[in-house]
Write a protein that binds this DNA or RNA. Structure first.
Lengths: 146, 146
DNA sequence: TACCGATCTCACGGATTCCGTAGTTGTGAC
DNA sequence: GTCACAACTACGGAATCCGTGAGATCGGTA
């Protein structure tokens, strides 16, 4: 992860479909070199190039962030969450929650089922707190813009 | 937002650089039609095609989720957060926080400055609680995979 | 010193993709 | 009916993608 790869990522944060030649011109590399680096970044899992939406605007009615407290080892709980399709985002944190998980659901019934039937019953989960999304105001990935 | 556009988004959630022709074959549309739809989805802000990373793996040392409570109107605070480069994600929520904000910082000093000097001093902010990220376990955008 | 592996440049050529445009179809309003 | 508009198809030229091979450079290492 040197400065050049950083610069390539910044270019792709602005436009994930930008041509390799254009990126090369911007970062001072040949088209072939950019191509190699991008492929490696993707293969290594350092970066992914994907479409991102606001689920609430494309038919999903309910979305929430869950703060979760666990007794004992965090990892089994984190793994179980990671395996769920409805869970988009899992992060271990320091603070009054042990981990945060973002869930995307079709409707209230679905959300209720995921939280109370599938997450709160996981072994090790001591308690959860839900923050139901009302409106997404910002969603960016351009830390490169500074 | 019909089923076809949904299907197009799903394709691009798997691979943001997938060719229009391949998408067209998958969703039953011509290449040009897919191109038009994708362009419209981008123009309307429904979808963005971008590179996504884990900031902690590309040089940013500190990342945190902030739970914020506000007195009075939420919008001015949400707007102020949205305007900050360090804030990647802002969402209005129901629950014990009025809004959640994700911040990405270079190091501890930077994080401290953003939280205590720039966010907690915003007019209307009553209190904040920080959840410093220890490890990102999952980051997906493929609600289409179900 | 000599060698190795990694990375870059440059070049190439064929397949594929992109993109503008012209023509067609379908639908709702009046 | 017909007019307007949105969405689709078809098509051709330009640009891009992608594998490939040769040669240069630069550590690190025996």
């Amino acid at each position: 992860m040197d400065a050049v790869s950083l610069a390539i990522i910044e270019q792709l944060q602005e436009d994930g479909r930008r041509p390799y030649a254009a990126i090369g011109k911007a970062v001072g590399l040949s088209e072939a070199a950019v191509r190699q680096r991008v492929q490696k970044l993707l293969d290594q899992g350092v970066m992914q190039i994907v479409a991102v939406t606001d689920p609430l605007t494309v038919g999903f009615r309910r979305q929430a962030m869950l703060g979760i407290n666990v007794e004992g080892d965090l990892d089994p709980v984190a793994e179980a969450l990671t395996a769920m399709d409805e869970v988009e985002y899992v992060v271990l944190t320091a603070g009054s929650f042990d981990l945060l998980a973002e869930v995307v659901c079709e409707d209230d019934d679905h959300l209720l089922e995921v939280i109370s039937k599938r997450i709160r019953t996981l072994p090790g989960v001591r308690s959860t707190e839900s923050f139901v999304y009302l409106k997404l105001k910002k969603q960016t990935y351009q830390w490169g813009s500074r």
